[in-house]
Amino acid sequence: MIRLGWIPANIDDNSHYPMHQAIADLLETFNPQSCPICMKAKIRFYYTISEFQPKFMIKNGQVRGTVWVWCPNCLHWTHGSGTQLPKSVTYVNELEESEIKKVKGPYIIDNLNRFWEKGRLSESFTVI
C-alpha cells in the first residue's frame, strides 16, 4: 500500500534546515534522534552506497553514499548525498539486490518506510 503525503523538507516551510541537522546528528552520534519537526517519533534512515561512484564521491580511498531520513509521524523527509562514514562505522544493508531496485523511483520514501516496518532495514550503525 502506497502512503501518500510524504513531505520533502523545504526551505519555505522551515523544515529544510532541521531535517538536514537531523542527518548531521545521525552521522555524528550514529543513533536516530527525535524528529526535529514534530518531536513525536524517532527519525528513520537508510544509508546506501551509490552503485555509480563518480570521482568526486571518493576521497582518500573512502567511498561516499547517500543517507535518507524520514519521520513516520509528520511525514517530512530529506536526503544528503556524498556522506562519508568513518572507517570505524558500518551500516549493514540487509536488502537483497531485487529489493534495492524497488527502493529507487518516485515512491522511494514510501518503499523505504515499508522495508523499515517489516524489519528489513538496519535501525542503527555499528561502531567497530
Results as ranks from 00 to 15, higher is better:
125 F>W: 11
72 P>A: 10
27 L>M: 14
58 I>D: 04
94 E>I: 06
58 I>Y: 04
65 G>E: 09
47 Y>L: 05
51 E>S: 05
71 C>F: 03
71 C>H: 05
107 Y>V: 07
72 P>H: 05
111 N>M: 12
106 P>K: 15
46 Y>N: 02
35 C>Q: 02
86 P>I: 04
84 Q>C: 14
56 F>I: 12
10 N>A: 11
106 P>D: 13
63 V>C: 06
5 G>F: 09
20 H>D: 10
114 R>F: 13
64 R>N: 13
12 D>F: 12
118 K>P: 01
55 K>P: 04
11 I>E: 14
66 T>A: 03
127 V>G: 12
32 P>S: 14
75 L>T: 11
122 S>Q: 08
28 E>A: 12
100 I>V: 13
109 I>L: 06
128 I>W: 08
120 R>E: 06
43 I>M: 04
51 E>A: 02
105 G>C: 09
68 W>S: 00
89 V>K: 07
86 P>Y: 05
21 Q>G: 09
12 D>G: 04
79 H>C: 09
86 P>H: 04
97 E>V: 14
61 G>T: 05
28 E>W: 08
47 Y>I: 03
74 C>K: 03
102 K>M: 13
65 G>V: 07
122 S>E: 07
92 V>N: 10
20 H>Y: 11
33 Q>A: 11
88 S>Q: 10
88 S>R: 07
112 L>A: 01
68 W>A: 00
67 V>A: 06
19 M>N: 07
46 Y>F: 14
46 Y>R: 02
15 S>D: 08
65 G>M: 09
56 F>S: 08
120 R>L: 11
90 T>C: 10
100 I>F: 02
96 E>C: 05
41 A>L: 02
48 T>W: 05
111 N>H: 12
70 W>R: 01
63 V>G: 01
42 K>E: 12
20 H>A: 04
99 E>I: 02
15 S>R: 07
29 T>L: 11
103 V>M: 08
28 E>I: 08
56 F>L: 07
10 N>D: 15
91 Y>C: 10
3 R>M: 06
9 A>E: 05
22 A>G: 10
